[in-house]
């Protein structure tokens, strides 16, 4: 050690060799990431799959990208920890297999609002419309900003094919017919949701609006784990 640290030791020599110094630095920083990351990619046991977890429908995918656009992840986590209080409050803790189609992952790092990983099915569609339009109408004292533009802006389905093709390249198992019928499928799911909303006394004509896509995604969240296998 001392021959290394001496004022005229080997490290002193190294200080005169920027190229070698830089190479050693790169090696030093590469070790940790590599040792931790490779097993995550290579070992199946590190990413167990769950048979009931399926890719997002075209409308849910669209809603998820709107969730990303609005930065919901800044205040809402999607990761229930294996603690009794979180299981009590939010439901079963999150499993690795549940997020295999999440690109990017949206686990979040801060809970200004509650965790949303199992919000799917917890509230009726209309509740989400009212809540997103004016959070304090359903949750007095809420700090959340209103997202009323989701009710007035038309949802953009034009890029669905490109998005799903991209995801398929990366490994999401969308079939040709899934992608060809994506827009059709999204519109069908949207009008179903819009119908439920108006039938329960909510506003009419939301089927072309962004909010139905967001609701489709929210109602999907965390439900795969308990749905029956077809």
């Amino acid at each position: 050690m001392s021959s290394f640290l001496n004022t005229d030791g080997r490290h002193r020599t190294l200080e005169g060799w920027p190229l070698v110094f830089t190479t050693l630095t790169i090696l030093a920083v590469l070790v940790g990431g590599t040792v931790e990351f490779l097993p995550l990619v290579l070992m199946e046991t590190n990413r167990p799959t769950i048979s009931t977890v399926t890719p997002y429908t075209p409308l849910e995918l669209t809603g998820r990208d709107l969730y990303i656009r609005e930065g919901c992840v800044s205040c809402h986590s999607q990761q229930i920890r294996p603690f009794r209080d979180e299981i009590e409050r939010y439901g079963e803790y999150s499993k690795p297999g549940e997020s295999i189609y999440d690109r990017p992952f949206l686990w979040g790092s801060k809970r200004t609002g509650p965790d949303l990983s199992r919000v799917g099915g917890k509230y009726p569609d209309l509740w989400h419309v009212l809540h997103l339009e004016d959070p304090r109408s359903t949750s007095p004292n809420s700090l959340m900003p209103p997202y009323n533009w989701l009710l007035s802006q038309d949802v953009n389905l034009d890029n669905l094919t490109a998005k799903m093709n991209g995801l398929r390249t990366l490994g999401t198992p969308y079939t040709d017919s899934d992608i060809e019928g994506a827009v059709q499928d999204a519109k069908a799911q949207a009008s179903n949701i819009a119908r439920t909303i108006s039938a329960s006394g909510g506003p009419q004509g939301l089927e072309t609006k962004e909010i139905v896509a967001v609701i489709a995604y929210l109602q999907r969240m965390g439900t795969d784990l308990t749905k029956s296998q077809n």
Binding site: F37, L40, R47, S99, I100, K163, G166, L167
Partner: peptide, 16 residues
């Protein structure tokens, strides 16, 4: 997948 939209090559646990 568009001029202003991309998906990361890793998903879920790996992406995290």
């Amino acid at each position: 997948v568009g001029l202003f939209k991309s998906y990361p090559i890793f998903a879920g646990v790996q992406d995290a």
